[in-house]
Nucleic acid binder design. Structure first.
Lengths: 383, 383
DNA sequence: GAGTGAATGTTGTACCCCCCAACATATACC
DNA sequence: GGTATATGTTGGGGGGTACAACATTCACTC
């Protein structure tokens, strides 16, 4: 784990180079050298290793217009891929994502009833069988689950909307596919993805909060790494209590963010049905009636209290809002900012910025693939 | 920062050995070898370096009763020391703490009025002048402040009870003493100290919450390291809102843990004055009247809600309670446990244990010294 | 009390990794 | 075409750890 021998140094430096490419895209050797702090000759040797491992390609340098010998461009091989899986109540999304973070292919499997975990696993395994063939090198599977996942063994402990309670997911799927499988909470992965590729690029302390049909999920990045807690359940900001109200959320808990800040109420307010959620943002932002404003501000106020609590606890630099929470933010960002700044302690509140998610539909495929790529990025030579 | 060269390997291995001694006390070379995973010969060389640096001593092995060549006992030199400082509203405590974590000497400076930061700094500097002399090697100063501290530069941003707002502390004290000075929030240091030496030994995810005369402070250890957030203000659990009540805390925020869970109310309930806080625990635990129980349970309930919020967010393995919060816990641990388990999500709640602080009065000297020793432990060769 | 086995310190060698310096190469600019 | 600039390439050097062989010390046994 921690370094102590020269082999570990090599592993770390290979990892640094590969991760640098993963986060920053194709780069010249000299850029890699500057970013990693390693010597030119060291970077040359590291890149040669990565080429030999089949993980990166070197291309002739693009004309840079600058003096000096051109530096070859190193890029990640897109045929090294991961499978990203996202089971939801009405559809199972499976994507193939290249190491260059491009989504190569996406397959959506709809079902009429909420599937059991076993059903989801066997469907996933069957789809993966079809995807793995070909000249592609699939290094693993990452699964984003809307619920609590035990990080150690990939057991879905509590996914209320899917009615999955304490079901093993990683192990059986790995058994069926022969691939390493990693499972995590969807919002956790969202937080990481926004940090790597979205609104939180380069931010070491951020909070991601997503609002969907089924509720509110949260993920935390603290000190540059995903905050998982002792078993991987950290980040459940949706179930933080923000009021003495007795309205209950999906987990049966009263007065929580998820109970009081709901997409359903917003849809109803602007006269949309549950199936028309796509239109919510447009309709809501166009509707400036007092009645709507009252509902939205009520929700924004509660959201602000919840965020303030989290800000007091975590002192993040950035809060990224996704789903209908981003819509709420766009409706009246000033109001939400004011609420958070009032309800959070001065110094912490002064730091924090609230922004909308940037990755949109790419979020979960990217995040799940990131999870699947993690072992490769940490130890390139083992592949 | 991150390792990449063989010098970094050496630094890391020296740090590993020294930290291992710091956390586990005197150890034989073979124990160090087992704990660090380094080869016998490597450990021999590392220990020799540490001896040459004047940081550790080797003693003749105690008879172990086991077969085989006895392994010399390596122990930290107690004459390598740090100064631990803790300004409070009525007294300034300054301790000399050895690298073996023993408190060598403590000086308390009382004052009639709350001192300004400048006064506290000059008193501290004067006391330190007297302490540094002698055959002792003082490597730094650690300061535990009851308030928010910007970790980057040791500026006390907001310490309401001391009336210190945005006052530089580390820089001027360092200037006066010629020693490196690190400043942090007291509860943050408490969390680290309990993890290293107290109730949270070996626990990688814990929450520490202290209740004192002036309010409630919190510190977080997540993933094995102190969670500071973007500027070091993380952990302010006292100002998390747990109710719609309009009772305000010291920061003027309504319905927070600190507003509703107070030592003053407990003292009043059992008929003690503010100056008799020492007697609170004894008196409270002896008093089983209904009136007292009602007050205590009300506080325990609020505390439980606040803890549940934090547990949902952080999924700690352990919550350590200090000060009068430990008294509350002792009064009715079952009730507090039940409240937390009810208000937190199932899986997270199932993990968490609530315990009382173990370090007592040693907490802050140990924690502040730990902060001061940190650079030494991370890079022994630079001293 | 001498012998045996076990555990550990010590020493010299081998290997790995990174850095550095010198040289080679490729481009821009004049 | 020459010069300056930037970067790849190569060989040597230094630092660090692991390993194997040997040395040391203790407990146990006969």
């Amino acid at each position: 784990m921690v370094q102590g021998t020269s082999e570990d140094v090599r592993r770390l430096n290979l990892s640094t180079i590969l991760t640098s490419l993963y986060l920053n895209g194709p780069s010249s050797r000299s850029q890699l050298s500057a970013r990693s702090g390693r010597n030119r000759s060291t970077v040359g040797s590291l890149v040669a290793d990565l080429v030999a491992l089949g993980l990166v390609d070197e291309q002739d340098p693009a004309p840079s217009g600058m003096a000096g010998r051109p530096s070859p461009i190193v890029s990640l091989r897109p045929d090294v891929a991961a499978i990203a899986v996202n089971p939801e109540i009405d559809v199972l999304t499976i994507s193939v994502v290249g190491l260059d973070s491009r989504i190569i292919q996406t397959i959506k499997h709809s079902y009429s009833e909420i599937p059991s975990a076993d059903e989801a696993i066997s469907i996933t395994a069957a789809v993966i069988q079809g995807l793995v063939s070909g000249p592609r090198r699939v290094v693993g599977v990452g699964v984003a689950v809307p619920g609590q996942v035990r990080s150690q063994d990939g057991v879905v402990t509590h996914a209320p909307h899917l009615h999955w309670i304490d079901v093993p997911f990683a192990a059986p799927l790995s058994e069926l596919t022969g691939l390493p499988v990693a499972v995590a909470n969807d919002a956790s992965l969202g937080a990481r993805a926004e940090r790597a590729f979205g609104a939180g690029r380069g931010v070491d302390n951020l909070l991601y909060l997503n609002g969907g049909a089924s509720g509110i999920g949260g993920g935390i990045v603290a000190g540059g790494t995903s905050l998982l807690g002792s078993h991987g359940y950290a980040g459940e900001l949706g179930h933080v209590r923000v009021s003495d109200s007795t309205v209950r959320d999906s987990a049966g808990m009263p007065g929580t963010l998820e109970a009081l800040v709901t997409r359903a109420q917003l849809l109803e307010t602007v006269g949309l049905g549950c199936s028309e959620a796509d239109l919510l943002e447009e309709r809501l932002l166009a509707d400036r009636s007092d009645a709507t404003a009252a509902v939205v501000h009520q929700q924004l106020y509660r959201l602000g209290l919840g965020l303030a609590n989290a800000v007091n606890l975590l002192n993040p630099e950035l809060v990224v809002l996704g789903g209908f929470l981003a819509t709420l933010l766009r409706y009246d960002a000033d109001f939400l900012n004011a609420t958070v700044h009032e309800a959070a302690l001065g110094p912490s509140a002064a730091d924090v910025k609230l922004v909308a998610s940037e990755l949109g539909p790419r979020l979960l495929p990217t995040g799940a693939a990131q999870l699947a790529f993690e072992p490769l990025l940490n130890d390139p030579a083992s592949y």
